[in-house]
Amino acid sequence: MAVAVGAVVLVGCGGDEGAPEVGRTGSSVPVVPSVGGTAESTGGAPTSASAEPVGDCGPAPSLAPGHRIVQPIRQPNKDQLYFKKTRFVCDANGGHYEAVGEEQTPLVFVVEVDATLSGPTPWKARYLGQVWVHIGKCLAGGQDGEHMCSPFPVYEITVDDKKQITSITEIFHP
């Protein structure tokens, strides 16, 4: 007589408090440890404000060192990005990021920042002012002309050793 024994392990969407988030590769939604190098705990099967509780969506995907996911809180000006840390939360579409905590110390953009903004077709900003205007319009109402804004206005940024933003990519999530 054979006996089969199975075990089920449940993993929450976020990491333990103080541990970096790790996750699946190949996901269409990138992730990063929250700004400051620690993960925000989501405590089980988190939900978004607009969704019913969903099951475990697995650990958040990981990003390369120096990359972060942030949520702007107002239109950038004077070369500065005003933002909050983010955490990855589960939803019916596989998960998204939402702002947590207090406003952080603004980061400065390099003059020649590499910027990709989203919508149905991602597009490259030709100059830094386009990034500022796009973020401002998206935060104010969700549409920048023909360029659709994500309902979760988060951006993957790369920060150099001088703590300056060298690249910014809008993450579109329905």
Rank of each mutant, 00 (worst) to 15 (best):
A2P: 14
A2N: 15
V22D: 04
G23H: 04
R24A: 08
R24E: 07
P33L: 01
G37D: 02
A39H: 06
E40R: 09
E40A: 09
S41Y: 03
G43F: 14
G43R: 13
P46Q: 02
P46N: 08
A49D: 08
E52L: 11
V54F: 00
D56Y: 14
D56G: 15
C57E: 00
C57D: 01
P65F: 02
H67T: 08
H67R: 15
R68A: 10
Q75I: 05
P76M: 01
N77F: 07
K78Y: 09
D79E: 02
Y82R: 09
K84W: 02
R87K: 14
V89T: 08
C90F: 04
D91R: 01
A92L: 11
G94N: 05
E102W: 06
T105G: 01
P106A: 02
V110W: 08
T116F: 07
A125P: 11
Q130R: 05
W132F: 14
V133N: 14
C138D: 11
G141R: 06
G141S: 07
G142L: 12
D144N: 15
D144V: 00
D144K: 03
P151L: 00
P151H: 01
Y155N: 02
Y155P: 11
T158F: 09
D160G: 03
K162Y: 14
K163Y: 12
E170V: 01
E170T: 04
H173N: 12
